[in-house]
């Protein structure tokens, strides 16, 4: 009988998700240019946050260098499109393949030589910084001067993924919806179960026949590939890419703040977290500029992170769910994924 109640809550969850995205579509039809462009960024980071969430929230592997994969995606699209006039669709695909490969190699080498947990996370930062600096000195990819897309004519062109701000809003919305639905589907698939098992207890998972090594490489690779797709679109939205802006530490932090604030390992967490954190970041940035206090946005980020980790250690979304009496969620003291990484 409890099986049917699970099905009922499944239906409820999917309907709630559909409702949220329908509402967001309506918002996109009504809002002004500023709100649209801000929400586009929020939704893109929701998608990239999902890819990061897949890796830590479900697979148990921490990355603090996701900017590497975001940057690979952005550069793949930009180089092919700007230099060779190739459609961004192919650039997105190629970027995803390259990033997935880079992620797999990074993970394979690290886990092969027992570099795990927080040490693996440090390695991801090092890899991201290495590539960022390398791109800064590489003329073919534009060096520090970066790469600029042609200013959009304003006419919508789905084949070349060009259009106005509202067009990109709906592209980002579609990606975010895919991210949320994909996380939900993966988390209830074979991969999801096996990944959560290895996240919770690697040794016990292996004793149950889970080939944790290949699954760790796989989850990092899939996370990298999807992050690259988000990065490719982010570059198009911004109209120009520079190593420091698309591959810097700030991007890595922006990617992870959504899931951490919103709720690790959940399908909705990254959306809720990005909605809360990124507009605040922008507002504080504007306020800081007005007051002549640059860096106020970073202080605000830090404060939000501290407050959330202190008062809502599971993130905002699980706390809301628990408030409404859902009891399936396990009681947690701290973010269990991070606790596992610390061990």
């Amino acid at each position: 009988m409890q099986r049917t109640s699970n099905q009922a809550s499944d239906t409820k969850r999917w309907s709630a998700g559909a409702l949220v995205f329908a509402a967001l579509a309506v918002v996109g039809g009504m809002s002004n240019a500023y709100v649209i462009s801000l929400l586009t960024i929020v939704l893109l980071f929701t998608f990239m946050g999902q890819s990061w969430n897949l890796m830590l929230g479900i697979g148990g592997q921490l990355s603090i260098g996701h900017a590497l994969f975001v940057g690979i995606g952005a550069y793949a699209v930009a180089i092919l499109n700007i230099k060779y006039g190739v459609t961004p669709w192919i650039g997105l695909l190629l970027g995803a393949v390259i990033a997935g490969f880079v992620g797999a190699v990074l993970a394979w080498l690290s886990f092969r030589f027992e570099v795990r947990g927080i040490y693996f996370a440090l390695l991801t930062i090092a890899a991201a910084e290495f590539v960022r600096i390398m791109f800064g000195g590489w003329d073919y990819v534009g060096g520090m001067q970066g790469l600029f897309y042609q200013a959009p004519s304003g006419a919508m062109d789905l084949g070349m993924l060009r259009g106005d701000a509202r067009f990109y809003y709906f592209v980002a919305l579609a990606l975010a919806a895919i991210g949320v639905a994909g996380t939900e589907l993966i988390s209830r698939s074979y991969w999801g179960y096996v990944w959560r098992a290895m996240r919770d207890d690697d040794e016990a998972a292996r004793a149950l026949g889970v080939r944790t090594f290949r699954h760790k490489v796989l989850v990092v690779s899939i996370s990298a590939a999807t992050a690259a797709i988000g990065g490719g679109v982010l570059g198009l939205v911004q109209g120009a890419i520079f190593p420091d802006s698309i591959m810097g530490m700030a991007i890595s932090v922006d990617v992870l703040i959504g899931p951490v604030v919103g709720g690790l390992g959940t399908a909705f967490g990254p959306l809720v977290g990005s909605m809360a954190a990124i507009p605040l970041h922008h507002a504080m940035g504007a306020l800081g500029d007005a007051l002549g206090l640059p860096g106020l946005n970073s202080v605000a980020y830090g404060a939000v992170l501290i407050l959330v980790v202190w008062f809502l250690p599971d993130g905002i979304w699980p706390s809301i769910v628990r408030l409404y009496g859902a009891t399936q969620l396990p009681a947690r003291g701290r973010i269990p994924q991070l606790r596992k990484v610390e061990e």
Partner: peptide, 16 residues
């Protein structure tokens, strides 16, 4: 596996 239900725990073995 503390984050998974009793049934989900038992399912992991079957995925071998």
């Amino acid at each position: 596996m503390t984050d998974m239900s009793v049934l989900e725990n038992a399912m992991v073995g079957a995925f071998s």
